[in-house]
Nucleic acid binder design. Sequence first.
DNA 1: CGTCTTTGACCGGCGC
DNA 2: GCGCCGGTCAAAGACG
Length: 229
Amino acid sequence: MAAAAGASTPFNFCRHVPHADDVFSGSWMARRRPSAPHGGGAGTGFGAASFVASTFGEAFRQHLDLLDYLSDDQGAPPPAAVPGASYVMPAPAMAPAEPVVPDAVAASGYPRNVAAAVVAGEGRGRTTTDRIAFRTRSDDEILDDGYKWRKYGKKSVKNSPNPRNYYRCSTEGCNVKKRVERDKNDPRYVVTMYEGIHNHVCPGTVYYAAQDAASGRFFVAGMSHPDLN
DNA sequence: CGTCTTTGACCGGCGC
DNA sequence: GCGCCGGTCAAAGACG
């Protein structure tokens, strides 16, 4: 089965929404979007690499080879809204993520030995990009991470009784995609795989800056969200 | 009326 | 070369 990868890694998501009902030991928190701004309640997701780079910080790097991870794709820079920002060590996560390489992912040809959580874009000779997969215990397949997603496909896949849903970031010019499906071995879990790098900031996320007294340079001091304040 | 989901068809890669 | 399979497209319908 797609058990939790060895060492779970603490990290933050674009929208970090700790909620007692949703936080599970060893898994990513998930929460139903309180009021979807766009009809239909399209899924929401976070950007793989941009989110890794901007929110995982060193804690994640220590577990994953992020240099390799971030080196492909189009060499996309950090989110535009954080110009020149040195990535800020994220606050300790409320609950550790449960990075996995789900069976569904592995079955797609992605190497199982790629640091468990990050799936590099080498599978089956595909030309993409940054990939990252998570398994999330949730009754809800819609994970609220602040991004706006548009569903463009649904497909039943072999060896799984559960359909796979395909989403694309609905921000114009952003080609980030994600696939969502329930774990075939444990329907309580949702397997989400992100592909690509957001070329924009997380909608609804407010970056706040601080100035380094020594250098006078501004840097991103953290993120917040109105829901959390 | 605009936006989003649904869903069948189509396409391309891969294994045999 | 053929068939299978996953991923994407696009038309139609639903919804706010």
